[in-house]
Structure formats: structure tokens, C-alpha cells
Amino acid sequence: MKWRLLEEKVFRALMILCLGAVIAGLALIVAVITAKGARSLSWEMLTQVPKGGYYLGKSGGILNAIVGSLALAFGATALACVFAFPVCLYLQRDYAGRSRLASFVRTSLDLLWGVPSIVYGAFGFTVLLYMGMRASLLGGIIALALVELPIMARAMEEAVRMVPQALKEASYAMGGTHWETMRKVVLRQALPGILTAILLAFGRGIGDAASVLFTAGYTDNLPRSLLDPVASLPLAVFFQLGTPFPEVQSRAHACAFILLVIVLVVSVLSRLLGSRVSKYSLR
């Protein structure tokens, strides 16, 4: 009896320890970024594009990178959705779930998940060259969508797969077709999970530097069309950290902070949306 109680206590302590480590790590990152970036963070930074000599410490802001990153990440997430969504539905057992094709697709997605994003960047760059295009918003969106697709599709599939079979059968038993059941019952039940999947992919996408390095390029201007090159926050961090000037390095941390805030805002918004749409879901 003593032993069992001890065991209970030890494992509880271990769990709390690990949880603490995770939270501490996160807090540390936020603290460092804020501390180092705070003094450069200004309204000017959020609302202006870089002026001449910005990277040497002169005035200007990184509006170009903020707009670029948002355009890239929203574009890529939307594009990835267009493909991930039908794929995750088709992988359900009611459609292809039991076939070899389905398990092949799942394995492929898992593999793609593990591919480093620089590979997508290089691949996207080759395709761009082949099509005679230069680095552009469109190119960046496509490469980023490739990075996001496996994460999104797998996470969505997981959410949709969690819908109990009995629930689907209730709809089938009333004469619903596969598609009606998917649309009216399965999606409703899985919607919070699907939103999480989209958010996960968005977070990964907006923070990715390697895939947009060659495909989206970098510019001090705001993008005017899909075919213009765009700047992005991760690259802004990368370039500014690489300079020898402390003021510029501090701006890199400020950029990282902005990136963090964007992800936070998007995730809070999607949580709110999630709790609205999950009002009817069964738990």
C-alpha cells in the first residue's frame, strides 16, 4: 500500500516537472525576445517599409515583411486547405479508408511531413525556373503550401477519424448518403479539430524561412501582385540577426516578437471560433 502511494506521488511529480519544463522553455523564449526586441519595437516599425540604410541602423520599419508574411501564410494555408480537405475526407473508411491507396497516401503524407522545408524551397525554385518565373508571392505560396499540406491533411484526418462510427451509422440508417453524412454530421462534429489542423499548418507556415528563401525572394517594397517578390518575417529575422550592428539585431528580435504575436492572435481567434462552432458537438 505504501509503495503504491509512493509510486503515485513519484509519477505525479515527474509529470509536473515535465509540464514545468515546457512552460519554462516557452516563457524563456518569450522573455528573451521581448527583452531584446522591446527597445526597437515602435509604431514606426509596424507601419513603414525599410528606408535606405535601414539594415545599417537607419530609420524605417518592416511593414513589408509583416504584409509579406501574412500574404504568404494566409495564401498558403488557403491553398493547402483546398487540397488537404478533400484528401482527408477521402481517406475516411466510408470512402477509400480500407484500400491500399489510402494507406499509401497516409504513408506519403507522413514522409512529406518529415521532409525539411529547404527541400520544398529548392523544389519550388526549380519549378519556378522551369516555368520562367522569378521569385514571387505566388511561388512562395506554392512552396509554403507544400510545407503545410502534410501537417494539415494528417491533423484533419485525425480529427475526422475521431468521429464515432455509430454517429455516422445513425445518419446512414436514415437514408443519408456518404456525402450528406460527411457534410452534415461528420464535419460538424470534427469542425473544432479541423480548425486546429488549419491553425497548426498556419503556425508552421508563417514561421518557415527556408521554403520562402528562394521562392518568395525578399524586397523592401510591398507586394503589388502575385508575381512580385515579397519579404517575410522569418527572413527579416534572419537577415537582421546576421548584421554586426546591435540596433539591427535588436530589430530582429522585435520581428520575432511580432511573429509570435501574429500566431497568438490567430490562435486565439480560431479558439473563439472553435468554441462557437463546437456548441453542438458531442463530447
Partner: peptide
Amino acid sequence: ISLRKKMGLLSQKPQPLPM
């Protein structure tokens, strides 16, 4: 589809739809 429309089912465990 029309078969299942004709045959109503009441299952062992009630399964309300998420709506």
C-alpha cells in the same frame, strides 16, 4: 437509400446528431 428510408432504426445506445 430508399431501403434505409423504409426501415427506421432505433439503436441500443441513443446517438443524437451534433445539432
